[in-house]
Design a protein around this nucleic acid. Structure first.
Length: 473
DNA sequence: AAGCCTTTGAAGATG
DNA sequence: CATCTTCAAAGGCTT
C-alpha cells in the first residue's frame, strides 16, 4: 500500500499525498477544459454581444490554451450588459457596476456602484451583501486580502488603494484562510503572505489557486494555542456542536464520544480516543469507554439497545435472528479522505455563514474553498487522511473497500443521472454563468420560489447547476 | 421512505 | 494502464 510505504509513520510527504496534489498536472487538463468551456460559453452568448468582440475573444483563445487568464476582458465586457440589466431588475440598481464574472462568492459586483467615493463599501450595499450572502463578505475579504497580499509583495504601495478593487478593511475582516487554519495559524500571517497565494487562478472557479510547490512540509501542525476552539476534522475525536459525529455502539449501547478530549492531544491520546482500548494502551487522562472505531456502524443499534433495556424475555427465535445479526459482519465504513475530513470540519462554519443547510450547496462551497486552500493547508488534511487510512488498515487488516460495494461493481443502479451532452454541473461552465456575479438568493432555493421572487419563466431563471441558489437570468 | 444531489479523494472493477 | 464506478459525510429535496 502506498500510504504505508514510509513505515516510519511520519512520512508526511508520502507519495500518495504528492500524487494527490496534482494541481500542476490537473492544471493543464482544467485549462483545456476551461478553454473549451469558455469557448462554448462564448458561443452561446455570442448572440448577446457585439460581433466586433469576436476576434478579440478568439485571439485570446490561443493565449488561453497556453496560460488562460481567469476571465478575458472581452468576456467580462460581454457579460456586463446582461448583468447590468439583471442587477437592476434584481435590486433596483443596487449593483450598477459590471459584476465580476468569476467565483460567485468573491465577486463584489464591480466596485463602482456599491462603494463610496472613499473606496469603502456603502452601508446599503454592505448590508445587502451580508444579508443576502454572508459568505460574500468573508470571501470579499478574501479577495481583498489576496489583493493586499499580492500588492504587499509588489514594490508599489498599491495595497493601500487599488484602482480595481478598493481595499476595504471590514470590521470583521479576517484573513481569507483564517477559517481554514485549524491547527496552526503560523501560515498566512498578515503581512507575511505565503509566496504561492495568488500565483495561479483556478480556471474553473476563478479563485486564485496556488501552485503546489514540491516541498510539502512534513510538519504535522497541531498548535495547542489555536486548535482547541476549532472543531477537529476528525469528528470522532472532538465532537462538533456537542454532537457525536458517529453513532457508536458498544455492546448495544450508544456512546457519545468523549467530550473532554482536545485537539491538541498527543498521538497516544488520539489513538486512545479514536480506537478501541484493546488496540491502544489506555491513557491516564482518558476514560476508556470501549468505543470502537467510528467507521463501524451496526445497523441494529437501536433494536439491540431497546432489547437490552427491556430484558431477555424475547423468544429464542428472535434471539437467533439477533445472533445472526450479530454474526453479520459489521459495516466498516471507508476511512475519510482529505476532503471529507475538511468538509466535516468546515461544514458547520459554512452553514452558519451562509444560512444554507442543503448539503449539496454546502458541498459546492466547500469544494471551492478546498481548491482555494494553500497546499500547506491541504497537506494537513491529506496527512490526516493518510493517518486515517493507516489506522483503519491496522484496525481492519482484511477490510477492503470492496466490502462496502452494494451488489458489487457494476451491479448497483447508477446513482448519478446521465448528463446531457452539453450539461454540466460546473458553475463556471453554466450557460447562465453571468448570474453568478450576483448574490445568491439563499431564501429562494427552489424554482418555484425563484419564479415567485423574480416573476420570470422557468427556463430563463432556474439554473440547474446553480440549483436555484443564484438568480439566473 | 428511499434515493438524489453535490463535492473530492481513494480504491475497486472493467475493458 | 486508462477509465469508470462506488463510497465516504451531510441534510434538504424529490419521487
Amino acid at each position: 500500500m502506498p500510504q504505508l510505504n514510509g513505515g516510519g509513520g511520519d512520512d508526511l510527504g508520502a507519495n500518495d499525498e504528492l500524487i494527490s496534489f496534482k494541481d500542476e498536472g490537473e492544471q493543464e487538463e482544467k485549462i483545456s477544459e476551461n478553454s473549451s468551456a469558455e469557448r462554448d460559453l462564448a458561443d452561446v452568448k455570442s448572440s448577446l454581444v457585439n460581433e466586433s468582440e469576436t476576434n478579440q475573444n478568439s485571439s485570446s483563445d490561443s493565449e488561453a490554451e497556453r496560460r488562460p487568464p481567469p476571465r478575458s476582458e472581452s468576456f467580462r465586457d460581454k457579460s456586463r450588459e446582461s448583468l447590468e440589466e439583471a442587477a437592476k431588475r434584481q435590486d433596483g440598481g443596487l449593483f450598477k457596476g459590471p459584476p465580476y464574472p468569476g467565483y460567485p462568492f468573491i465577486m463584489i459586483p464591480d466596485l463602482t456602484g456599491p462603494y463610496l467615493p472613499n473606496g469603502s463599501l456603502s452601508p446599503t450595499a454592505r448590508t445587502y451583501l451580508q444579508m443576502k450572502w454572508p459568505l460574500l463578505d468573508v470571501q470579499a475579504g478574501s479577495l481583498q486580502s489576496r489583493q493586499a497580499l499580492k500588492d504587499a509583495r509588489s514594490p508599489s504601495p498599491a495595497h493601500i488603494v487599488s484602482n480595481k478593487v478598493p481595499v476595504v478593511q471590514h470590521p470583521h475582516h479576517v484573513h481569507p484562510l483564517t477559517p481554514l487554519i485549524t491547527y496552526s495559524n503560523e501560515h498566512f500571517t498578515p503581512g507575511n503572505p505565503p509566496p504561492h497565494l495568488p500565483a495561479d487562478v483556478d480556471p474553473k472557479t476563478g479563485i486564485p489557486r496556488p501552485p503546489h510547490p514540491p516541498d510539502i512540509s512534513p510538519y504535522y501542525p497541531l498548535s495547542p494555542g489555536t486548535v482547541g476552539q476549532i472543531p477537529h476534522p476528525l469528528g470522532w475525536l472532538v465532537p462538533q456542536q456537542g454532537q457525536p459525529v458517529y453513532p457508536i455502539t458498544t455492546g448495544g449501547f450508544r456512546h457519545p464520544y468523549p467530550t473532554a478530549l482536545t485537539v491538541n492531544a498527543s498521538m497516544s491520546s488520539f489513538l486512545s480516543s479514536r480506537f478501541p482500548p484493546h488496540m491502544v494502551p489506555p491513557h491516564h487522562s482518558l476514560h476508556t469507554t470501549g468505543i470502537p472505531h467510528p467507521a463501524i456502524v451496526t445497523p441494529t443499534v437501536k433494536q439491540e439497545s431497546s432489547q437490552n433495556d427491556v430484558g431477555s424475555l424475547h423468544s429464542s427465535k428472535h434471539q437467533d435472528s439477533k445472533k445472526e445479526e450479530e454474526k453479520k459482519k459489521p459495516h466498516i465504513k471507508k476511512p475519510l479522505n482529505a476532503f471529507m475530513l475538511y468538509m466535516k470540519e468546515m461544514r458547520a462554519k459554512v452553514v452558519a455563514e451562509c444560512t444554507l443547510k442543503e448539503s449539496a450547496a454546502i458541498n459546492q462551497i466547500l469544494g471551492r474553498r478546498w481548491h482555494a486552500l494553500s497546499r500547506e493547508e491541504q497537506a494537513k488534511y491529506y496527512e490526516l487522511a493518510r493517518k486515517e487510512r493507516q489506522l483503519h488498515m491496522q484496525l481492519y487488516p482484511g477490510w477492503s473497500a470492496r466490502d462496502n460495494y452494494v451488489g458489487g461493481y457494476g451491479k448497483k443502479k447508477k446513482r448519478k443521472r446521465d448528463k446531457q451532452p452539453g450539461e454540466t454541473n460546473e458553475h463556471s461552465e453554466c450557460f447562465l454563468n453571468p448570474c453568478l456575479s450576483l448574490p445568491p438568493i439563499t431564501d429562494a432555493n427552489t424554482p418555484k420560489k425563484c419564479r415567485a421572487l423574480f416573476g420570470l419563466d422557468r427556463q430563463s431563471l432556474w439554473c440547474k447547476p446553480c440549483r436555484g441558489f443564484f438568480p439566473c437570468f
